[in-house]
Design a protein around this nucleic acid. Sequence first.
DNA 1: CGGCGGCTTGATTCGAGTCAAGAACCGTGG
DNA 2: CCACGGTTCTTGACTCGAATCAAGCCGCCG
Lengths: 260, 260
Amino acid sequence: MMGTNESLSLKLQSLGADADDLELALKAVKRPFHVTAGADVIRAGDSAGRTTVLLGGMACSYKRDEAGSRRIFSFHHPGDFCDLHQFVLPERDGAIGVQALTDAVVAVIDHRDMDRLLDRPKLAVAFWRATMLEAAIYRERLTNSSRGTALERIAHLLCEQLARREAVGISGVRLPLSQIDVADAAGLSVVHVNRTIQTLRTLNVLSKANHFEAIDRKQLAYIAKFDGRYLDMPRGWTVRVDKDRFQTSGCDGHVEHGRV
Amino acid sequence: MMGTNESLSLKLQSLGADADDLELALKAVKRPFHVTAGADVIRAGDSAGRTTVLLGGMACSYKRDEAGSRRIFSFHHPGDFCDLHQFVLPERDGAIGVQALTDAVVAVIDHRDMDRLLDRPKLAVAFWRATMLEAAIYRERLTNSSRGTALERIAHLLCEQLARREAVGISGVRLPLSQIDVADAAGLSVVHVNRTIQTLRTLNVLSKANHFEAIDRKQLAYIAKFDGRYLDMPRGWTVRVDKDRFQTSGCDGHVEHGRV
DNA sequence: CGGCGGCTTGATTCGAGTCAAGAACCGTGG
DNA sequence: CCACGGTTCTTGACTCGAATCAAGCCGCCG
């Protein structure tokens, strides 16, 4: 799983890159290296001159508040660009850090190489689209997060990560997250996340194991009112709530991807 | 104030467009029209084939939840693009609507014309940058919103809007928002927004008038822990919290803009 | 074996939502 | 000019979800 560019290829294709673009882009991805769980991939304020791509494992983008606690605003899965913002709006949003949540493999694209990639209009739009997708994720979380109960928020968060992993070819139902990670991402206390998870377990939505494992994704999606269209999911992963029926469409095994 | 392209020009320049780009872009902005306060600029699911630009007034982007209540995830000020996402990721995020909060003037850029604008690399990056700025705003709200008291959240929201308006040449301290708008944007109930605002009034941060008017922006920024750098504000609008001193830097009258 | 980080559980507090009812502020029409 | 209806703003009383504080537990690793 680690070390290949499989997920990155799927990602770029789904962003609209054609075969030539893809080859060019993959060639620009250089100097892969290993990061151990818990370590920073990018120290806040660092990373001048290159863009980081996650190839394997899981990571998160976060800021720290005055009290020093971590606020996760985004999770990263293989194929994700971790700091495109540093390329487009350099030096502005300096407070952002990226941390590996599992042992991870990352590589970089030098900004010099990025400039050349952007000469290809299709690729330029693909990168723009990547940012737009990121924005769509933020939007969704914003509308979903402020209001709504902890159960909904956590369920939504889990649905989103599972869906995003499928989109890049990772189809397991297990997420390598700690409850602390989820708490920092959902803006809830660890204690309350714990209690909420136990509710999900008694509902037979999550497994009783001490890690995150969805055993009833339809129900999870229903609780979350999850509609994956904002993630550019071609179909599936969409809850349809007609009247007050417990209807769920999609989720029929693996979601094919690779629209070009 | 309405009817000119002043704000749009400032915006595009700050996004890195040069004189030629600017002229070209402005020429692509067509068919200005008027929208009355409260009306939808874009009905959710509409707006195929063109991108909407706000030229005067104020608007918001929102989704509606199952209960039908409005969730504002973004305010728009003159010069803002309201639906770039429709161009980059068409048909995906269909649930988004844009509503005028005051009487407003908007115009459109046809997608056909956009395609030609994107042939100019600098402009392509400028549009990408616009999306990135939007994402940065979402990020900030995400980290700021989940946790933190209502006072902080509302203060932050107001600071952001004032700062963004200054960036496009609108320097008043008054915001044409209703408490309902703020509630829908902050994810708080109207009742609680009201009480919070009254706190801000007794602190002499907002005026006692029945509209939003900041009379002590330093204090407002301090309460909000507002650091405008994420908005690409060149300087000013930044709270520096050294030790536990009540220090505020910047905010010294008008902020110059127009870095190219 | 001992320590440390993550998970669980209970008790208590508090911020913010909800419900409800006035009051002030329009714009409109008689 | 004033009466009317609607929308926004205010204020009060009550409820509840989630934070915090405080232990105890479990599993892992040195």
